[in-house]
Design a binder for these strands. Sequence first.
DNA 1: GTGGGATTTGACCAAATGGTCAAGATGCAA
DNA 2: TTGCATCTTGACCATTTGGTCAAATCCCAC
Lengths: 226, 226
Amino acid sequence: MTGLSRQTPASFKQGGLSRIQEKNRSLILEAALGEFSRKGFSGATVERIAAEAGMSKSNLLYYFSSKEAIYEATLAHILEVWLAPLKTLDPLGDPADELAAYIRQKIELSAKFPEASRLFANEVMQGAPQILPVLETDLKRLVMEKCRVIEDWIEAGRMRPVDPVHLIFTIWATTQHYADFSVQIRALTGKDLSDPDFQRETEASVTALILNGAGLKWPAESDAGA
Amino acid sequence: MTGLSRQTPASFKQGGLSRIQEKNRSLILEAALGEFSRKGFSGATVERIAAEAGMSKSNLLYYFSSKEAIYEATLAHILEVWLAPLKTLDPLGDPADELAAYIRQKIELSAKFPEASRLFANEVMQGAPQILPVLETDLKRLVMEKCRVIEDWIEAGRMRPVDPVHLIFTIWATTQHYADFSVQIRALTGKDLSDPDFQRETEASVTALILNGAGLKWPAESDAGA
DNA sequence: GTGGGATTTGACCAAATGGTCAAGATGCAA
DNA sequence: TTGCATCTTGACCATTTGGTCAAATCCCAC
């Protein structure tokens, strides 16, 4: 009787996705991440996404109603992972340790999910058409909260007075740079974050530069190898 | 007699472009920069570029034989400007002054030509299909040369031992971040580099962070206002 | 002013691509 | 096994878009 349910993947009835749906949506999102990050939204084709996910274009459009819907889902899927590390910045911890840990996590993400980084960068560079609202609300609230944490550290004389928001931008910029510009980095150094040695070297350099720039001792006293 | 010259803008005969050609090529390149930086290569349309340049699509294709040709010309046009500042890093100057000047120039570029920055970022993020050769030759040579300069400063004990290539990457990352992610920055701070006050503030923060991170005194002694 | 090359454009074409649809295949509960 | 909902697909369509072409129109040296 219902002519309606036909084009709706049984789906959301009460949030329960069927086994097949679970698998296919997951395959699609993974393929979409690769395609969108490689080609950008406009350059990506649903045909290629479908092929990479191992199904027909028609079938893909059975699970996601449009190219834009796939894009939004992909973006939402990575956004939480992407912004998570900042939340761990602990006001009660040691400033140097906390910032070092944050930088390490961000570089870890850049190393493990360079495609997500590029997709995010692409979205923001195009004017953040999909995620601007999130940036202006959730992210802004989070950043302001963590800026307050840093300000408190500064007022307590535990680090040099730096503008917290620029400190955060600098951390974002540097860590994401290694993912987004990996081709350039490989062209210049012959390596990128996929090389564990290079990842360690990058982490050490970036952390030392930023922490010392913020007036924190780094590496912390301990054995500083040759 | 020559059926050949017809589709070739009188052009290159000996490098002399006619007045009209000069004007139109310039209009096209400016329009293309806007369109490509806003939409990326795939998202851009020659129709819109032509409209923005105030001419018909057919006429645009009279000056550039294809969309890709416009893209290459646009990229080549900005590339020299983009890489110029690094060349000014003077081995004979004071490390702090030299690096501060370099950072200032890069931020100046990000403020004045954010579209060029985004176009460049886009190109590299897609794998640098057009400019990879340049990166691997000219840019690599330049970077290695300047790394040597920094190493000499370090060996002379004039700055903390830092990996020069990571120092350069950090400067690139931070300065370009303010152009490429200006939408995010505006969402979080309400301002961006188009605001002169924000530009000064950014320059001061970034310079202080990086130079102090590199073990250099900054700001140099002088009146440090309240 | 005039002839011929430079410039400009509208009409047109072919390929790529997002999306629809109806029919067929598959999985599963009874 | 059978009936029905879920799942899958090939055929098809409309639009967008990069690019061509022949016919104007413009510009300028003579």
